[in-house]
Simulated scan of single mutants.
Amino acid sequence: LGLCEAPPCRNAYLDTSTNRSRRYCSDRCATRANVAAYRARKRLEADRSQSTGLAADSAQRTTANSER
């Protein structure tokens, strides 16, 4: 027996896999958890690129202003 690892779901399930590696009660929970993790990674990447992009953007403006 196991408990589903998807955050909103805590259903119990019977793990019949050969190496007892099942983590979710259904494909639906597994997909939902994987999509949420993917979106969180993309959001983190976007936040990082924005923070470094702003610094690079302001450096380009400073260079452009000094060339005038």
Rank of each mutant, 00 (worst) to 15 (best):
L1H: 12
L1T: 12
L1F: 08
G2A: 14
C4I: 00
P7M: 03
C9F: 01
C9Q: 00
C9V: 01
R10E: 13
R10V: 07
R10W: 05
N11C: 07
N11A: 13
N11Q: 13
A12P: 07
A12W: 11
Y13M: 01
T16H: 13
T16L: 15
S17N: 10
T18A: 15
N19F: 11
N19V: 13
R20Y: 07
R20M: 05
S21L: 09
R22A: 02
R22W: 02
R23M: 12
R23C: 13
C25P: 01
C25H: 02
S26W: 07
D27T: 14
D27E: 15
D27S: 15
D27F: 12
C29Q: 05
A30Y: 05
A30Q: 09
T31H: 15
R32D: 05
A33S: 13
A33N: 05
V35L: 09
A36V: 06
Y38I: 04
R39S: 05
R39L: 09
A40Q: 04
A40D: 04
A40C: 03
R43N: 06
L44W: 06
L44Y: 06
E45P: 00
E45I: 00
D47L: 11
D47K: 13
D47M: 08
D47N: 14
R48H: 09
S49Q: 09
S49I: 03
Q50W: 07
T52R: 09
G53P: 08
G53L: 02
A55C: 05
A56T: 06
A56S: 09
D57P: 00
A59G: 03
A59E: 14
A59K: 10
Q60P: 02
Q60T: 14
R61D: 10
T62N: 09
T62A: 13
T62H: 08
T63F: 08
T63I: 13
A64I: 04
A64L: 09
S66I: 05
S66H: 04
S66R: 06
E67L: 15
R68H: 13
